[in-house]
Amino acid sequence: MIMLVLFIICVMTFYIFWYCVVGAFSTGDDFANGKNWLWPANFTWANIRSVLADTDIYQAFFISFLRTIIGTVTSVLFTLTVAYGMSDPTLKFRKFYSIFMIFTMFFSGGLIPTFILYDNIGLMDNFLVYIIPALFSVYNMILMRTSISEIPKAVLEAAWVDGCGKYRTLWNVVMPMSKGVIAAISLFNAVGHWNSYYDTLMFTSDPELQTAQFYLYNMIAKAEKVNEMLSQGIFSNPNVVMNVSSQSVRMAAVLIVSLPILVVYPFVQKHLVKGVMIGSIKE
């Protein structure tokens, strides 16, 4: 029964993705006519080739990989350290810190002050603009703190007795015991980094810093813009305005751009499900 329910959900969610896959391997006309529900009526590699023929995308992939790896590692480590610090019930001003941090989740000054800030500290058009502002996330910190505070006190005290310092305890005890939440948050971070295009759009003008997601965003935004103008009747011929890629080429781009990050999940999954409690207590 449970398996049946899950199977149905699985089919629905998978189908949405499958539809994109079919689109990516269909001819533009077939796809537009809705002839492909399960399998491309005329299988073609043309869309994939068309996306990969654009050499800009390779540099974009490189930047995406780089920011995802560096960004995830630094952010998870930094946030985890803070979360561990915050989980200590003896910490002075703990409640104040909490409120101080949570407050920032709700109020922001908007783009312009941020722009001025980044401009002043030299983050504009700098690769670090992908890394530094994303270093700390209050939300992730709270999730990690919750998980750390579930670790039995006895375990932490035992570490103290063994003469571990704060950082040693964090590294040797807390980290292995919070594997699940670290895995989940690494996943959130990695996917967030991979999927982000807004910072590229706002804070960089160097084409060398383009990410793969930004490349995709450009492609879709362009098509949207033209569609909007067409339906408002501003221009009669879309080709006069801008080059638009067909819907199936866009699907191919979606597929190519999301594939690398999709592969990450099965690796993370292992750590998500496996409970690590038993082992560490017995040690």
């Binding site: 783009l111 312009i112 722009f115 001025i116 759009l201």
Partner: peptide
């Protein structure tokens, strides 16, 4: 490329 928000920010700075 960009939108009006970005342009505003560029003008402001």
């Amino acid at each position: 490329s960009g939108n009006n928000e970005r342009l505003n920010a560029m003008i402001a700075t």
